[in-house]
Amino acid sequence: MSEPIVVIRGVEKWFGGLRALGPVDVDLKPGERLGLIGPNGSGKTTLINCLSGLFVPDKGTIVYDGRDITREPAFRRARMGIARSFQIPRPFTGMTVLENLLVPMDYLGSHERSELERADEVLASVGLAARRDAPAESLSQLELRKLELARALVTEPKVLVADEAMAGLSENEIDDVLALLMRLNDTGVAIIMIEHIMHAVMRFSQRMICLETGRIIAMGTPQDVAQDRQVQKVYFGERAGA
C-alpha cells in the first residue's frame, strides 16, 4: 500500500461556541476515489474548506505529500496540487471560458507547453472546447459545472475535491460528469467527491465516509456505509417499530 497523500489528524473547526467539525481523522491515498456524504450542515464543506485552505482549523494537523500544510494559505495549496470546485459555480464573469482558465497562468510556475495549449487541453478534456470563446455568463448549468472542474484542473492537481459537482443536473448530465471524473482519476488524480446524489457517489467511490454533526459516523466500502444502521438513521430517520 502506498503512503497516503493527505493525512488529516484531529482536525476541529469552531464557529463561535459551535463545533462545526471534528475531531476528524481522514487519510487519502494517491489516486483514490473517496466519497464524502452526510446531511446538510454535517461539516462536509467545512472539512473541505480546511483541506483547501479557506479555513484554518482550530485544532489538528493536515499533512499533504509529507508536508504540514495546516497553516498554508489556499493559493499555495493550489500550487502544490490541491484543487477544488465550488458547490455553486463561481466563474469569473466578464471573461470568456478560455480566459477563465488563463487567469492563474502567471502564477502556476513554468511549464514546457504553452499556457494556451494547457488551457485548450483542459477544455477538451471536460468537453468545453466548442465553448472556448463564449462569455462565462452564457453557459448552461452543465457547462458551468464543467468550467468549474476545468478551472480546478488547469492547476494540474494531485488531489481534486468535487463539491456537489452534479447538483441540479439531469441523469444524462450526471453520467457525463461521472465519466469525466473517472477519466481524470485514471490519470492518477485522487478525487474526493461530496455528493447528495447517492447512486452517483456510490458508483464512483472506492471508499466512503459519512459525516454527521461534524464527526465521522461511518467509513468503509460504499455498500458497508449505505447499510450502516447509523447512516440509515441519519438519512431516513428511525423506522417506526424497527
Partner: peptide, 25 residues
C-alpha cells in the same frame, strides 16, 4: 491581453475562487 491583467479583473469578482486557482489575491 495578459494573464496578470486577467487575474486583476478576476480578483474583484471572487478572491476566494482566485486563491483556489493558485493566485494570491
Amino acid at each position: 491581453r495578459t494573464y496578470s491583467g486577467l487575474a486583476l479583473r478576476a480578483v474583484a469578482h471572487d478572491d476566494r475562487a482566485l486563491s483556489i486557482s493558485g493566485v494570491n489575491p
